[in-house]
């Protein structure tokens, strides 16, 4: 029997379910570039980002999402990076952001 159409649906939860999400991507990136774990999400990288002027790419947000296991959009977002290097210049934690971006690309493309 088909499901009724009453004009509304049960909605999926917007909540990040930390227990269900996998942090496998985060662990792989940490393995390649350990300084990834030192990020304090201050946003210096995103604020200076060349691509951030014309798209809504934000390395800060992406890093947070990866560490929470919210990885659905990572592959499409990381393509927006121009590899200009401005983020590496400003990071106050000394993170090798260029290598982080290359690591993300490498892992999601495999």
């Amino acid at each position: 029997m088909s499901k009724p159409n009453w004009g509304y649906k049960v909605q999926t939860d917007n909540q990040i379910d930390f227990d269900k999400n996998s942090r496998g991507l985060m662990l792989q990136i940490l393995n390649i570039e350990p300084t990834f774990g030192n990020c304090i999400a201050c946003g210096s990288c995103a604020g200076t980002c060349s691509a951030g002027n014309f798209t809504n790419f934000s390395l800060q947000r992406l890093n947070v999402q990866i560490s929470r296991g919210e990885t659905a959009k990572v592959a499409s977002e990381i393509e927006k990076c121009m590899l200009c290097g401005k983020c590496t210049l400003v990071c106050p934690r000394g993170i090798n952001t260029r290598n982080v971006i290359m690591a993300i690309k490498r892992v999601v493309q495999n």
Binding site: N14, Q15, I16, D17, F18, D19, A41, Q60, R61, V64, Q65, R68, E70
Partner: peptide, 10 residues
């Protein structure tokens, strides 16, 4: 999770 703008459950 204010840094990603979503509620979080753990």
């Amino acid at each position: 999770d204010t840094l990603s703008g979503k509620p979080l459950k753990m």
